[in-house]
């Protein structure tokens, strides 16, 4: 479901009407080119299977293309789309459908993890195959043949632009989705005693996540009426000056809400690098490990943990 909505969205962004016209202009596809293409239309279509074979035979030589070639369903679709591709190239209508089709092709190759350079090679093979037929069409006038092929090539390059964009957009969206997933791995504020919160921080802290963490913490202070917060950084491998400043800000904001924040679990490396960076941490109260932090917090809250004496006689 989600996949489809992403696709439609992307194709709308990339291929709005304005963008179509802009691309055609950039490709310098003029009226005479359309006439040239119309002129070689039959030449190209008569040997359609040969051109398709040039593309897929090129791929078949390489181990890297097996991801695509071994998947029957993907291959069927790829063959169908490539066929439509060539037919549409000489069809003369470069409208929205034309773009959609190339976009789908780009996405398909991306999903098949087709190597980019390999795709370019295969595309070139196909172009050569078509070029040979066009040259053969004008055996006595190579200049004319060249002009016709150039017109055809313009459209081909214009197509390449779309396919490359589709592949890149698809990849970017994968990255975006992954980033979103990482962000959704929230940093929970856990209540362990009455009015005592623990905030375990794990992984890389960037500005975005640090801000989210601070917001969450302040809301949690309010919701749980927390008086003490222990922020545990055991799971944080590196802290730079930006993140350190964020921590200082968080502690200051917590104080404004009437809560004391304790930072625990700074590793030796992190401590060293903070000192080397010259970050002023005098406003933070830091304690070695989480246990120490909780003990300190309990002291602030006036709690104490007592071991219950379970002598054998009292055990039932």
């Amino acid at each position: 479901m989600r996949e489809t909505s992403f696709q439609t969205e992307a194709s709308t962004i990339l291929f709005g009407t304005v963008d179509l016209e802009r691309r055609l202009r950039f490709g310098n596809v003029a009226g005479e080119d359309r006439a040239h293409i119309e002129g070689v239309k039959d030449t190209v279509l008569d040997h359609l299977d040969e051109h398709l074979a040039a593309f897929f035979d090129h791929l078949a030589q390489y181990e890297e293309a097996q991801g695509l070639l071994r998947r029957a369903d993907m291959m069927d679709e790829a063959k169908r789309l490539e066929r439509e591709h060539i037919i549409a190239m000489v069809g003369g209508a470069y409208g929205h459908d034309y773009f959609e089709q190339r976009f789908r092709l780009g996405q398909l190759y991306n999903r098949a993890q087709l190597d980019f350079a390999l795709f370019m090679g295969a595309f070139h093979s196909q172009m050569s195959s078509i070029g040979r037929r066009i040259m053969a069409r004008f055996p006595k006038d190579s200049g004319k043949a060249f002009l016709h092929f150039t017109s055809f090539k313009k459209v081909a390059f214009f197509d390449l632009g779309i396919i490359v964009d589709a592949m890149m957009t698809d990849r970017e969206q994968t990255i975006l989705r992954q980033q979103e997933a990482i962000r959704e791995l929230s940093t929970p504020a856990l209540q362990v005693r009455d009015r005592l919160l623990i905030l375990p921080i794990i992984g890389l802290l960037d500005s975005y996540r640090a801000k989210q963490l601070t917001d969450g913490l302040l809301q949690a202070i309010r919701a749980h009426r927390a008086k003490v917060v222990v922020m545990d950084l055991t799971g944080v491998a590196t802290v730079d000056s930006k993140v350190a400043n964020h921590l200082i800000q968080t502690v200051a904001a917590a104080r404004l809400m009437g809560a004391t924040a304790i930072v625990t679990g700074l590793s030796a490396d992190v401590a060293q690098s903070l000192v080397t960076l010259g970050v002023d941490l005098s406003k933070l109260s830091t304690i070695g490990d989480l246990q120490g932090g909780i003990e300190e917090a309990e002291q602030i809250l006036g709690l104490s943990t007592v071991r219950i004496d379970r002598s054998p006689s009292t055990v039932v």
Partner: peptide
Amino acid sequence: VGIQPDVAMALV
């Protein structure tokens, strides 16, 4: 007393 979370963050 009663500084709101957003206000606290903004102040800091």
